[in-house]
């Protein structure tokens, strides 16, 4: 197990440096300039632009910029946002909120998705199954910002049972609606994935054996079908953190959740290039770490993974 974890960490390191280097290279190589974009259509005074460029190290060669950034990471310095606040300070305030939102969303999508997918798979072709398939397709097709506005309109404006924007301190009850929206797309994928693997496992020899040796149906379902069907779902939840990051940016922006996503959202809207770059980098790091954690968890759940070459 220790070797498995060490190996996974060793695999992530080159990907981490490659990905961050790639982001910095893009910013450097692309025509256009995040500083000029700050001036909007009117443009910026050349002296101001030069001063800003020096402040964000944009006047230095890109490999130096990158080394400054990586060096900073090791001492907990993620750079400075456009408002002059250190990115690490903003992260300290916003990250716990995003973490709570993500936890809520992942729990909901996993629990509901697996349950509905399981029932769907067990009742293949029945009314419940067909409705679950149709509903999940709709959730997959409707972009997350549309889901967010529809939810805001129905639950916030029409029914008045939820607040359309999250209050100060982001209490749990205010986070429920944004979390439902954030969970919607992945929920639909998990339903479909669980259904598929339940249907496949139903015909497996080990299920027939379990039934033949006299286990009760609920026990066969719980121990033999459900557990094995969850293997692809756990993999999916790992890769899903990428979608979750993008979703969090949009949902937090729309519901005004004071998290990492809203900070990025506002930086995008105000076209603050350097802040956008540092926050996307932060999100990529979160994504990689989350993936690593899921992989380690996966190794605990499935011994075959642990010992595989």
């Amino acid at each position: 197990m220790v070797w498995y974890i060490v190996r996974r960490i060793l695999q992530v390191i080159p990907v981490f440096f490659g990905a961050t280097l790639l982001i910095y290279f893009m910013v450097f190589a692309l025509p256009g300039d995040p500083i000029i974009a700050l001036g909007g259509d009117r443009g910026l005074n050349p002296a101001v632009a030069a001063a800003l460029r020096a402040e964000y190290n944009l006047d230095k060669p890109f490999i130096v910029q990158y080394l400054i950034f990586v060096g900073g990471l090791f001492v907990g310095d993620f750079g400075t946002s456009f408002s002059g606040q250190p990115v690490s300070d903003i992260l300290a305030q916003t990250f716990p909120v995003t973490l709570r939102l993500a936890l809520l969303a992942v729990t909901m999508e996993a629990v509901l998705g697996i349950l509905i997918g399981l029932f769907s798979g067990l009742r293949k072709g029945k009314l419940f199954d067909s409705s679950a398939l149709v509903v999940s397709l709709i959730f997959i097709s409707v972009p997350i910002f549309v889901t967010a506005f529809v939810a805001q309109y129905i639950f916030g404006v029409k029914l008045g049972i939820a607040r359309t924007t999250v209050g100060a301190g982001a209490p749990w009850e205010d986070l429920i609606l944004p979390a439902v929206v954030l969970a919607s797309v992945s929920f639909a994928y998990i339903v479909r994935l669980t259904r598929t693997s339940v249907i496949e496992n139903l015909n497996e020899d080990f299920v027939r054996t379990a039934t033949a040796k006299g286990l009760s149906r609920p026990r066969v379902i719980r121990v033999h079908i459900l557990r094995n069907s969850m293997i692809p779902v756990v993999t999916y939840i790992g890769t899903d953190f990428g979608l979750l990051m993008v979703g969090a940016t949009v949902t937090e922006g729309i519901f005004n959740v004071p998290g990492v996503g809203r900070t990025l959202y506002q930086a995008i809207i105000r076209s603050e290039g350097p802040t956008v770059v540092s926050f996307v980098t932060v999100m990529v790091i979160i994504y990689l770490v989350a993936n690593l954690l899921v992989d380690v968890l996966y190794g605990f759940l499935d011994p075959r993974i642990r010992y595989a070459k």
Binding site: P14, V15, F16, G18, A19, L22, I23, M26, V27, L30, P31, G32, D33, P34, I36, A37, G40, D41, G242, L243, M245, V246, T249, L264, I268, S271, G273, V276, V277, V280, M283, V284, Y287, L288
Partner: peptide, 22 residues
């Protein structure tokens, strides 16, 4: 491929479009 996969493509597009000249 792993490196490109590590950056969710919408986030990558956000960076590119924020940097590219208007």
């Amino acid at each position: 491929g792993d490196i490109f996969f590590a950056i969710p493509y919408i986030l990558a597009a956000i960076v590119i479009m924020s940097v590219v000249a208007r």
